[in-house]
Every structure is written in C-alpha cells, then in structure tokens.
C-alpha cells in the first residue's frame, strides 16, 4: 500500500465533509461578526468563485491521481464550453429552443468539452501508450497537452476573435439572507458544483468503474493483470475531466456573463494552485483548496487591492510546497514518479 493514492484508497471518511461544512459556516459567521456586511458579501462571492475553482481542481486532481498526468488542456475545455455556447447563441442556431436556448447552448458546450477531452485522450495517452509503452514514464503526455492547449486556444481565436463577449442569461433573482445579497444563480451554481463533485465521489467509491479507476491509480500493471481493461477505463477519466471542466465553464459563464478565449487561463492556474494547496490526488483536498483560493482571492482584493491576488495565492502555494509538499490533505506518494 506504499504506493496508494487518495483516489485509490478513496477514504471518503465522514469526517472530511463535516469538517469542510463546519469550516465554511464558521468562516461565514466570522466574516459577518468581524467585518460586517461588506466582508460577509466578499466571503459569499469568494465561496462561489471557490466552487468553480474546486470543480476544475477536482478535474486536475483526478487525472493526476489516476494517470499521473498533469493535463494542461483542462483550462481550454473550460473555455470551449463558454465559447461554443456563445457561438451557438449568437449565430442564431438555437432559435427553435426559444427561451431555453441559453441552457441548450451550455449543454452543447459541455458536450463539446467532453468530445475535445476524448480527442486529447486519443493523442496524449492511448496512442503514446501503444507506441512507447508506459506513457507516464515520460513528459510526453504533459507536452502533448500543452500542444493541445495552444491548438484549442488558437482555433477559437481564429474562429471567433479575441474579444470578450457578453453571454446574457435571462434570469436574475436575489435572495436576502441576514442582510447579505445572494444571487440565485450563485446558489444554484454552488449547489451544482457540490452535486457534481459528490456524484464523482460516489462513482469512485461505489461503482464498478470507480473501483477500476482506483485500481489503476494504485498500479496500472496490476490492474491490468487482475482483469481491468485499462484501455477502456482510461477514456472514462477523460470523459469525467471534460464533464467537470465543462460544468465549471458553464457555471462561470452563467454567473459572470462574459466569455472570451482566455477565460480558462486564470481559472485554470488558480485551480492548479487550489489542487496543490489541498494536496495533489486528493478530491477533498481539491475541494478545500478551491474554497480557500476563492476566499483568498476575494478577501485579498478587498484588503490589498486587485494586483495582490497572484501574490497571495501563489505565495501561499509556494509556502505549502516548501513546508508540506504533499499539501494540506495529500498523500505523499502522488506525483513522485519520474515524468
């Protein structure tokens, strides 16, 4: 078990979610008690941003945990969802769908992200593994995914231009809870992000495919010997990656109302920061890290101004890497192998 990863063991102890919920509530309460409504509002929007980072961070952590592969296409999958949805809407392809057109557009966007992710799987993993044995031995998949990052981003640039575009969502409602304004889309988004991640945890822990994924995470060769069809299970990781990034992209689009070919860059790097903070390979780590980064971002804008975000977040990451390389919740074995 020395090689075991968090995904492999999938110790989804009851403790972790309880701690997460309690910490969140305590932070909101502290925010309201100490800083009044302004801070409380920042905490709420930090948690929303955090839930998007969290979803993307889970996508990152899943590919590293199972395949030991840092998938740099995730930010572009995120962006593809938003841009594809905007392209469909503005092109007038969805007039039949009527008022629900934006929802259909986002759904198609998510499907596009999954399809793109499968394309990446074809060229980074399956093909290379066939040709060169164990692809994880080399930096090959990493470099290939950087290539795909460049390809997708520039394809979108050529097709749709570099401008930031408005994605109008026809509903807007606010709830007033204890004097704080909370947007309904924000709440729905948080709930959806949590639901997607919870569903993933369930799949990993309880289903047959989840068990296969955990086996591969522990040792691909042994998994293959024990009858896991590695070639058929690996695409599942990429489907899940596309799904998670796509859903996060759709939620981002709905909440912030803007799409651009570069919308994934910032979210992607922040999600990487979140994953490292929480511990690479740990789903609960990615969740905690996502929320921490989201909060750190809105609060450091509040206290130190807009330029300070990168310093705060990455400084935190660098300190964590130096002092506790496995992250807050991580398991030491992950990412140790030769690239």
């Amino acid at each position: 078990m020395s090689d075991s990863t968090d995904i492999a063991v999938a110790r989804m102890r009851l403790r972790a979610p309880v701690i997460a919920v309690v910490v969140t509530l305590v932070m909101i309460a502290l925010g309201i008690a100490l800083g009044g409504k302004v801070i409380a509002h920042q905490v709420v929007s930090g948690l929303l941003l955090g839930s998007i980072y969290m979803t993307v961070a889970v996508a990152f952590t899943l590919t590293i945990g199972v395949l030991n592969f840092l998938n740099f296409t995730i930010p572009t999958l995120f962006m593809l969802t938003g841009m594809a949805a905007w392209g469909l809407l503005s092109g007038g392809y969805l007039t039949l769908a009527g008022r629900g057109a934006w929802l259909v557009a986002l759904a198609v966007g998510v499907v596009a992200a999954v399809a793109a992710s499968l394309l990446v799987e074809r060229f980074t993993f399956r093909y290379l593994k066939m040709k060169h044995g164990d692809a994880t031995e080399h930096a090959i998949p990493l470099v290939s995914s950087l290539g795909f990052l460049i390809i997708f981003e520039n394809l979108v640039l050529i097709a749709m231009g570099s401008d930031s575009q408005r994605f109008a969502v026809p509903f807007r409602a606010d709830l007033h809870v204890a004097g704080i304004v909370v947007g309904v889309p924000q709440l729905v988004s948080c709930a959806m992000a949590v639901a997607v991640v919870a569903a993933l945890s369930f799949v990993l822990k309880r289903t047959k495919i989840g068990r296969a994924l955990r086996t591969i995470a522990e040792n691909p060769d042994t998994a293959s010997l024990l009858g896991v069809d590695v070639g058929r299970v690996v695409p599942v990781v990429f489907i899940l990656t596309g799904l998670l990034s796509g859903v996060a992209g759709a939620l981002f689009t709905v909440n912030y109302g803007d799409v651009s070919p570069f919308m994934g860059d910032n979210v992607g790097t922040k999600a990487i920061a979140a994953m490292v903070l929480g511990g690479v390979g740990s789903i609960w780590g990615a969740i905690a890290g996502g929320l921490v980064v989201g909060l750190a971002e809105t609060l450091s804008i509040q206290f130190f101004g807009g330029d300070s975000v990168a310093m705060t977040v990455w400084g935190l990451v660098l300190v964590i890497i130096v002092l506790r390389p496995k992250g807050l919740f991580g398991v030491a074995a992950i990412g140790k192998g030769k690239m």
Binding site: I64, L70, T269, V276, A310, W314, L318, I321, G335, K338
Partner: peptide, 21 residues
C-alpha cells in the same frame, strides 16, 4: 525536495510569484 509533477508545479508557482511581485 519535490519530484515529477510536483516539481513542475513548484517551479510554475515560483514563476507566478515573481511575476506577481
């Protein structure tokens, strides 16, 4: 102290901190 994917991430973080600073 870090290896593999972690070293990529650590050096990446270093670059971001410098640019941010």
């Amino acid at each position: 102290r870090t290896r593999g994917v972690y070293m990529v991430l650590a050096t990446f973080a270093f670059g971001e901190v410098v640019a941010g600073f």
